[in-house]
Simulated assay, not measured.
Amino acid sequence: MDANERALERARDQLSRDPSDLRALREGVQAAMRLGRIDLAATYAQRAQQLAPGDAHITAARGAIEIHRGRPRQGLALFEQADMAGLPENVFVSDRALGYDLLGDQPSAQYYYAIANRLNPNDETLRRYALSLSIIGDYDTGAAMLKPLLNIGDRPAWRMQAFMLAINGRGDEAVEVLNRILPSDVAAELTPYLLQMPNLTRAQQAAAANLGIFPSLAQAGNSAAEAQRAKRRRPGD
């Protein structure tokens, strides 16, 4: 059991004793988010909002959840509300950065990734940051950022590396990475989507690599709003 699983278990235990424990709900939301359990995080956030409607941390958590559900405009609007309620700079900042990536606003995304990397460094932020740099054409800096994770065989980092290569027009290398890290049938399923990455908008590229939201061929290169309506796929997760 890793640290996030332990934190989630502690929150559950405390909430079983006191369902109105706001601190436990906050911790449950954060642990669930880090584990990718977005629906569970949303359940905790909804309960917390009922207890403390104006709580800045919970409002930001709701924003992060919206972003992970592919609704960055709604998510970032919630972050603005949280700012007005006194949100500390380091709360869900990497998720806020992701929201800007999903809008195709990579400079703003990288501003917040830099803050996240300084205040709350973690592997997921590094992966997102590296991808964001690749999206604007700075593949070399992104690859250098990702290299320590690649050197220890971090599978999510290798998956991100495949997307970074594909975005920068190196499809053959990207497919080679996929075939090395994924079962052959999963790699084959993902390959056509990977090869269309250079044709996508920046927002679509970020959604595909970070959330597994791939537009259809007809939607490739269309607006961010259309990308958000695309079918959700998660091959290789």
Rank of each mutant, 00 (worst) to 15 (best):
L126R: 13
N4C: 07
V177Y: 01
D101V: 10
A230S: 15
Y113S: 08
S223Y: 09
R10Y: 11
L51E: 02
L150H: 01
I58E: 00
N117L: 14
D13K: 15
Q161D: 13
A11V: 05
A207W: 00
R170N: 13
A174I: 08
Y193L: 13
I135C: 02
S132Q: 07
A130T: 05
G221K: 10
D39R: 11
E176Y: 11
L8Q: 05
R23L: 15
V93D: 03
Y112E: 04
N222V: 10
Q110G: 04
R128G: 14
I65Y: 01
M160C: 07
A48Q: 00
A220R: 06
G63C: 03
A166T: 05
E189Y: 11
R127W: 01
A203V: 08
R180G: 13
Q81I: 11
A209S: 12
M197F: 08
G36M: 02
A52R: 05
R37D: 10
D2I: 00
N117P: 05
G54Y: 08
E176F: 11
R26Q: 15
Q81M: 11
P148D: 04
I58H: 00
L15M: 06
I135Y: 02
D2V: 00
Q46H: 11
A208G: 06
T201N: 06
R96T: 03
R234S: 14
N199F: 11
